[in-house]
Design a protein around this nucleic acid. Sequence first.
DNA 1: ACAGTGCAATTTTTT
DNA 2: ATTGCACTGT
Length: 799
Amino acid sequence: MSDLFATPPAAPAPQDGEPDQMSIRAQLQRMRPTPYLEGLNPEQREAVENIDGPLLVLAGAGTGKTRVLTTRIGHILATRSAMPWQILAVTFTNKAAREMKNRIGTLIGGNVEGMQWLGTFHSIGVKILRRHAELVGLKSNFTILDTDDQLRLMKQLIQAQGLDEKRWPARQLNTLIDGWKNRGLTPEQVPQDEAYYFAQGNGVRLYSAYQERLKILNACDFGDLLLECLRLFRENPDVLAEYHNKFRYLLVDEYQDTNIAQYLWLRLLAQGSQNICCVGDDDQSIYGWRGAEVDNILRFEEDFPGAKVIRLERNYRSTAHILAAASHLITFNEGRLGKTLHAQIEDDEAEKVTVTSVWDSEEEARTIGDQIEDLQRSGHNLNEIAILVRASFQMRTFEDRFVTMGLNYRVIGGPRFYERAEIRDALAYFRAMVQPADDLAFERIVNTPRRGLGDATLKLVHDHARSRGIPLMEAANELVQTAELKPRPRNALKNLLEQFTHWRTMLASLKHTELAEMILDESGYTEMWQNDKSADAPGRLENLKELVRSMEEFDSLPGFLEHIALVMDRDNAESNEAVSIMTLHSAKGLEFDSVFLPGWEEGLFPHQRALDESGTRGLEEERRLAYVGITRAKKRAKIYVASNRRIHGLWQNSVPSRFLDELPPKHVDVEESQSTYGGYGNSGIGGNIYGKSRFDSSDPFESTYDTPGWKRAKGSGTKKTGKAKQTRYGGGPASSSKVIDGELVAKSVSDTPSQFSQGERVFHQKFGYGTVISIDGNKLLIEFSTGQKRVLDNFVERH
DNA sequence: ACAGTGCAATTTTTT
DNA sequence: ATTGCACTGT
């Protein structure tokens, strides 16, 4: 390994095609010996300088993870251990990639264009795949499908198999196949027993059928971008060797989020230099539900023999109270490598973490709104304030309240620009024009706007295409020459095809943005929305304009299409001051002075579904989510519990989250809600029928552990009792009297897929009593008096 | 071909 | 309560 230093890759004489080599060398020359290492703490410095061999950097929240990563790259460059294009640096999101690029730019003073292999897993996957497409049965101009396209394709396949789409939804098949792909499994590799998961043993059959269709369409889905790379490397050792040779250093961000396919991909590539550095935090792994394997990070030392592990535990972000709360909470997780954050910020005035009990979600929004106004009055910037929710339906209450208050807010996340229907329609037009063989694009827009080309006509085109083995557009072209179609649809179709031909002739002569506008206008698509009277039509037209505007940055239509296939996000640099509202998931990686954490109730947080579907594993992931939430706060973390919440239109009274009991009382203040109105006299919903609530006792943290349901839920209650403050939980009778112990908690922690058994008597809100006939995961087939129904198990209860 | 009706589900999200 | 969907009837 050390001979890398003995014989540095000898910056050769400048060659054509190696971008900006001279300028980078010149920049490096100008650098002082190691100014970039100053200001790093010893662990960070070790992580930066230790560039040979496998290294895992366990970087807790706020410990300077990105700084280490970028400085390390800077160091590799400065020591001439590798040239920019010999470094492979992967991230998960485009945002992270962009940020890293910027920071490296600042570090080395400018040009980072030489770093061609800094990007997301997927973008690097595409890059590799396009070079060797023919080796895996694709052409190098293959299209990349998104979820929408995938679903439509799968729906077709399910129909083709004569299966009932209601019973076997495409969505579910997609999840299944996606799961297999995440685990790096091709259809042949899917384990026997799993092959039967979908529609009585059709799972794998559909998977291979799907893959065959993709090949015919010359298309890949996101999973394939990695999976096909794996196949490429395995079947072509020479190709793999080429990349071994190329990549001297590998760096991976957010390693705890990698799935198995990504792990295999990395491992194959790392076999070359062995210089792989993964940075991550097992305590922040919150994407298990979409295939991330915490195990990857937990097993690092076995996977990469001789690996070093460096822990970054000095936190530069939060106050000691906040860190203590988060650290204590996370110790309740068992599957973790273990790390303790130490506060570097000293602040004797620091506020403790607060827990506030409120009556319902509206009081919650009111209280938080008022507190934000207070902060604002005392000079805090709204951009430094965030509300982090578990589920997006919680956002609405806050939006409603903030609109009434006139408080500026912004919702982060939500539907992405490029996923909106109007944008996808427009893109489908462009795709169908650029790639006449793109059947999915053609299908999408053939009758949008309405042209009178319905199912009947489409079926004829399909059949013709199928029998001739040609793309839909071509088949349509042939069909309109014949008399097989009725005059009306025939003309409509002929018109459309002629328009496409017309547009294609303009491709060379017209500027791509003008052509785009022309297509949208001439096709009648713009008109369709102009005539639409619904409230969001103007917004959609605005989006279409925005789309054309964003095309300006690219020099051709195909170039633009390639870009957006991978980069589904858009920079919205909103400059005005506003409170951010987002989910806990989308808050990862961000930080705010003040963080509000509403909805800490059993069933919502931890979410019932996480518990039901993944048991203890699910609970631990929820706990990590709580950890992520708290550690976003620099100065203030404020938690809220509502006694009542409306779920699916029904009012339910709720049990405070078990996570509250896992916070260290020493660092927490329990507060009364500021706005106490709203509680009194409202006993109709869940009056104090159970007598004294456990929150009437003196110490909430202690008392909750005495609840039988609590003990059952947790398995063991091993927390010490003697405690400090005599703080009251819910203060007024309004909030304290509504809590009913038990059931929800007790039943939440089950490791079994379904807690029901065959032949059992159950009750359903709507269908009444019934008997369980069969069980498929969490889906039950039940015989009711009105007939058999398929129901999710959380919709019925034992009887 | 399309509009209106009834039924079922409803965590988290990137590429 | 709301919403998105599949099916039915014109």
